[in-house]
Design a protein around this nucleic acid. Structure first.
Length: 576
DNA sequence: GCCGTTTTCGGCCCGACTGTTTTCAGTCG
């Protein structure tokens, strides 16, 4: 797949063109950036797009016209882009690494290159250490400092952080702001509000008349390690968890517009703004304005969309994946909500690698108002997790039966397993035991190094056994950990469809597997979904919200989520 | 360089903050 290579080349060309006199305008630079983004987020290999539809298909991609389609074609045919090579000859600079440094853009990079020969992180480091930057025109002592800090930050930064790590911190900061008594309202915005699986920074909005004081308070809370920028309306700090956090103080009448503006991703916002312009308005983070520049009296986020004749859509959808068009047609689906969830079909106990007893898990589930949950311990092949054999499961289930009796229907514990799908696609437990179980998850935990065909066939064989209710964490990816195993998901989905196998949306924060985009793919098939927490301790049962968020990002409705069903309906479904 | 319900020219999202300036350029989101 050459998408990323070409996207990076276009991004670099944008950097070079932004300081090169041969560029026709800054809009040409933007065109390269836009096309780079299209390529970087394209799901299908660009070489396939080209093979199937030629240059016309390339020109069908957003932001790709005749010129850039020609350059993509040139690269696919020759492995080179002449214009790229020409520019690169002029600017032999590693823009990709250097632009990662906060405060360093193309113009400053080229200024440093021309004056000091800075062309990569290594030579930038030397230039900083030799204190030559401070005497350059346009630079000073402070900018040298900023670059030094930027380099340090880059080397210690862990990149994007798991939503599951970032959201609780964001919530605690909002709480502190509210408790300070200085703000009337505070809310999380940005990718955290969209429940994106990882976040690059936190965005928090607050209403207050005392901007300066709020910023003083914010920059002194104990989560803050250092202050990056500080103004009366916007302050950015570096948090001790290794993430930056923006706080914006907004006037009450602008809060809805600000929330709208700082929630959608960039592409969503640009589309919405363009719709505003077409209707004769101007939309920015302060409000919606008429032709004479007068602010219209809309305070809520919903009323902004309404004024544009758009249907309100949940934050999780605002990724420019077709929701703007649906909204204009007033066809936004009603998405699954956390309150729709009645049970949890993926949990472990201390009998294998869990931390808590089944009694403790039941108490935790009841505290969360679950009507049922499945206990699904690992099976014997997974030795590292002390997987259980048939006899151990039978003993454990006797205990579960007694507990169910004692609970007197306050909650129902379903007897299940997270059974290994072995290397050859066979199952890790006897059929007779599987028949006794309420809920069988199938999962791959070993031999990840197969090729795509082998792995696909392995899983299909297991699904065709007819003994698996749910395929757990279907792609095996671990966010910031390991790639998904090679898999033809479409073929697996076909097998799931014909065997009535439910696809799991694993809610564990570093899994979220299926992912949002894979859910969108899967929802085109006649399959149902189960959102399971994979809880290994009682507190993990609260991960459900991340699974629900991911399902919402995949536009799923309640009717497709099996653990939103009442118990009797679920049992009917499982007994099929 | 892209794009079209003001279509093949003339627009292209828009404002805050910082540092180095003395009115603004560069960068970011």
């Amino acid at each position: 797949m050459k998408n990323k290579i070409i996207a990076d080349m276009f991004d670099e060309m944008a950097s070079m063109l932004s300081i090169d006199e041969t560029a026709s305008s800054r809009f040409e630079v933007n065109a390269y950036k836009k096309a780079a983004l299209t390529l970087a987020t394209l799901q299908e290999p660009i070489e396939e797009v080209y093979a199937n539809g030629g240059i016309e298909a390339l020109m069908g991609l957003p932001g790709v016209g005749k010129g850039l389609a020609g350059k993509i074609e040139e690269f696919l045919k020759t492995g080179r882009i002449e214009k790229y090579d020409l520019l690169k000859k002029k600017y032999p600079i590693d823009f990709k690494s250097l632009t990662l440094i906060e405060g360093l853009g193309p113009k400053k990079i080229v200024a440093l290159y021309r004056a000091l020969g800075v062309k990569d992180l290594e030579s930038l480091k030397k230039a900083i250490e030799s204190h030559k930057i401070r005497s350059l025109p346009g630079f000073g002592e402070k900018s040298e400092d900023v670059l030094r800090k930027g380099m340090e930050l880059l080397s210690t930064s862990k990149g994007r952080m798991l939503l599951g790590d970032a959201l609780p911190v964001a919530e605690s900061i909002v709480k502190k702001l509210l408790e300070s008594g200085m703000v009337e309202k505070a809310m999380i915005a940005g990718s955290t509000r969209r429940m994106r699986e990882t976040v690059g920074d936190l965005d928090i909005l607050a209403i207050s008349k005392r901007g300066k004081e709020v910023m003083d308070f914010f920059s002194s809370i104990d989560d803050v390690e250092s202050i990056i920028v500080k103004g009366d309306t916007k302050t950015t700090v570096w948090l001790n968890i290794g993430l930056s956090c923006d706080l914006r103080v907004i006037k009450p009448e602008s809060f809805g517009a600000a929330l709208q503006y700082f929630t959608g991703n960039k592409e969503h916002n640009i589309k919405v703004r363009k719709i505003a312009i077409k209707k004769g308005y101007k939309l920015n983070e302060y409000g919606i304005f008429d032709k004479r520049g007068k602010i219209l009296p809309f305070t809520g986020e919903e009323s902004i969309y309404k004024k544009l004749d758009m249907q309100y859509m949940p934050p999780e959808m605002r990724e420019d994946r077709g929701e703007v068009e649906l909204s204009l047609e007033h066809k936004i689906p009603k998405l699954i909500e956390l309150s729709d969830i009645r049970g949890d079909l993926h949990t472990h106990t201390k009998e294998t690698d869990g931390a808590n007893t089944i009694e403790e898990m039941a108490d935790a589930a009841m505290a969360l108002k679950r009507e049922y949950f499945a206990t699904t311990n690992h099976t014997k092949s997974l030795r590292i997790a002390r997987g259980m054999n048939e006899n151990q499961f039978r003993e454990f289930f006797k205990h579960v039966d007694k507990l169910n009796d004692a609970l007197q229907g306050r909650i129902k514990i379903l007897k299940g397993a997270e059974m290994d799908i072995l290397k050859d696609g066979s199952l890790d437990l006897d059929e007779s035991l599987l028949k006794e179980m309420d809920c069988v998850l199938g999962a791959v935990h070993s031999a990840f190094n197969m090729n795509e065909e082998e792995m696909t066939n392995r899983i299909i064989k297991a699904l065709d056994s007819g003994r698996i209710h749910i395929l757990a964490h279907p792609t095996g990816r671990v966010i910031n950990g390991r790639e998904a195993y090679p898999l033809n998901l479409e073929k697996v989905l076909e097998a799931a469809e014909r065997n009535n196998v439910i696809m799991e949306i694993n809610a564990f924060p570093n899994r979220l597997d299926l992912s949002d985009t894979n859910i969108m793919l899967a929802s085109k098939y006649k399959v149902l979904f189960s959102i399971g927490t994979d809880a290994h301790r009682t507190s993990h049962m609260q991960f459900m919200r991340y699974g629900v968020g991911t399902a919402r990002r995949g536009w799923l409705q309640k009717k497709r989520i099996v653990n939103a069903l009442p118990l009797t309906d679920l049992q009917k479904l499982f007994s099929r």
